[in-house]
């Protein structure tokens, strides 16, 4: 790296690749850093901004010797942009899945095969709700179910009322 390249970089006239190389080289080249400082001083003086006291560089760097070295994860602009798009895409995808399931378009996997197999074996294709209708529960059974609800096995379901318990009644030869 020549001082001419350094001078061009300071004016923002270096290409991205050249600039990257210059900044890397500056870390291990005290002479180039000194040249940099001097060129900035020249620029400030030409604009009438003369130094009015001691050089702060040495003071600040001496004070920083006792400071722990800062290390921060570098978040590049492209990653930030991509992250923003990814979160947006995830939100849209989530809404689409919810809408799809809500509209009844979703079929659980293997349901068609299972239904086909059931039909082959002569099992009637009837809705589960039709198997036991509330009308078939006799008033006595209802009171029995209510009385034994507390001892029924609870099946906690996430997101659903935790206190709901299921009770069933089976009649064998007239006895419950």
């Amino acid at each position: 790296m020549t001082n001419e390249q350094l001078s061009g970089w300071m004016d923002g006239e270096a290409s991205a690749a050249e600039a990257e190389q210059i900044v890397k080289n500056l870390a291990g080249h005290g002479g180039s850093r000194e040249a940099c400082k001097l060129y900035w001083l020249v620029g400030d003086c030409l604009r009438g901004d003369f130094p009015r006291g001691n050089d702060l560089c040495d003071r600040v760097m001496t004070a920083l010797e006792t400071e722990p070295t800062v290390l921060a994860p570098i978040v590049h602009k492209a990653e930030q942009k991509r992250g923003r798009w990814m979160s947006l895409a995830a939100a849209v995808a989530g809404m689409a899945v919810a809408a799809w399931m809500g509209l009844g378009l979703w079929t659980p996997p293997f349901q068609d095969e299972a239904m086909g197999l059931a039909r082959q074996r002569g099992i009637q294709d009837q809705p589960l709700a039709a198997a036991v209708s509330p009308a078939e529960i006799l008033p006595d059974d209802r009171s029995y179910l209510m009385a034994h609800q507390a001892s029924a096995v609870g099946v906690p379901m996430a997101g659903v009322a935790q206190y709901i318990r299921t009770v069933n009644v089976e009649q064998v030869g007239g006895a419950r």
Partner: peptide
């Protein structure tokens, strides 16, 4: 560069902006 642990790079920023 400073965020990657290069303290000398901070010295350049001080040199540039101190005045």
């Amino acid at each position: 560069r400073v965020q990657r642990g290069d303290k000398q790079a901070f010295g350049l920023l001080v040199a540039k902006y101190q005045r």
